[in-house]
């Protein structure tokens, strides 16, 4: 059973056995090493247990049989299999894992530093040029990127399984980690320290983007000015409703930083901390009934007339 499970189910979008960067590759190598050692130990134990039940018996094979004295080989057996062999194996594995630990933490002279802040229950990312985005963090391919990890409230943990081991976001501390994606792709991550009601729905993506420079330049621009009548009135709705209380759209009067920055919201593929795809229907559902999708989230429901809602959606969908 061990082997069947072990061999068949190795890949998935968030599998640590499916690495896409040097950090995760190191972990995956370490995993396979200790996996095979463990299989050997397990087989030895199983064989010995079965062997102990062999039918060849000395005298009196029943429970009334006289107890046996401790055989001479007994202590040697325990000392070798319980002490000598484990000590040797463990020292080797310890050495390798400490070497890997040092390699993972090595200063890599990264050119880009992204500040990620955990919120209940979404991720905010700030780039050096002032770009602020949420839940989808673009990075260049094949370059080490330093992440500075902080939290706005409780403890969260930043984890992109296929790129790098996790690190916690703890109040009063600034943890950092430096990771690299060796090939382009959308790498899924999730908060991995229990952080309350919607811990399960605190997802995100790190996007290793071949067009990173263009993406960052576009993000740096203020929001597109509404050009049509509906988008114009959509902006009016945004500024006239509770939306403005929490969200920023750079280039408009909305500059509150409680919720995610929406300057380029239409550029993202998912919404609500990777909970749903970024479609018009989902966007609409989030505006009128956020608690139905993510009970306990900080976002209150917003009541709008149908016309206002449609123009607001038009406007938000224009924010590329």
């Amino acid at each position: 059973m061990v082997l069947i499970f072990g061999m068949t189910a190795c890949s998935g979008p968030m599998s640590i056995m499916d690495p896409a960067g040097p950090g995760a590759s190191r972990v995956a190598r370490l995993w396979w090493l200790i996996f095979w050692i463990s299989i050997i130990v397990m087989l030895v134990v199983l064989v010995l247990l079965v062997y102990s039940l062999r039918t060849r018996r000395k005298t009196g094979a029943n429970s009334e049989g006289n107890p046996e004295d401790v055989p001479a080989w007994g202590i040697r057996f325990v000392a070798i299999s319980g002490f000598v062999i484990p000590v040797i194996v463990l020292i080797v594995v310890l050495g390798i894992s400490l070497f890997d630990l040092a390699a993972l933490g090595k200063d890599q002279n990264s050119q880009l530093r992204i500040e990620v802040t955990g919120h209940m229950w979404w991720w905010e990312a700030r780039y050096p040029n002032g770009v602020v985005t949420a839940n989808e963090i673009h990075i260049p391919v094949g370059e080490p990127v330093e992440f500075s990890l902080e939290t706005a409230d409780v403890i969260h943990s930043f984890w992109i399984p296929s790129l790098f081991p996790k690190k916690d976001m703890i109040p009063g501390r600034a943890n950092t980690l430096t990771m690299e994606a060796s090939k382009p792709g959308r790498y899924q991550g999730i908060c991995s320290e229990f952080c309350g009601l919607q811990h399960a729905n605190m997802g995100m993506y790190v996007v290793a983007d071949v067009n990173f420079t263009e993406w960052l330049a576009n993000q740096e621009l203020p929001a597109l000015k509404p050009s049509s009548n509906t988008t114009k009135s959509g902006l009016e709705v945004f500024l006239g409703s509770t939306c403005i209380g929490c969200h920023t759209i750079r280039g408009t009067a909305a500059d509150s930083t409680i919720g995610p920055d929406l300057t380029h919201v239409a550029d993202r593929e998912t919404l609500f901390a990777a909970r749903v795809d970024n479609t018009r229907a989902n966007l609409k559902a989030i505006i009128i009934d956020p608690q139905g999708i993510k009970p306990g989230a900080a976002m209150p429901p917003t009541t709008l007339t149908d016309a206002d809602l449609e123009s607001l959606l038009d406007y938000l969908e224009s924010l590329r």
Binding site: M42, V93, K166
Partner: peptide
Amino acid sequence: VVGGLTGAMLGAVPFDQATTDT
């Protein structure tokens, strides 16, 4: 023994950092 072996795996820091809280 199965639990002990996975326990030893989790003693290896990089592997633990990958799988802790999973």
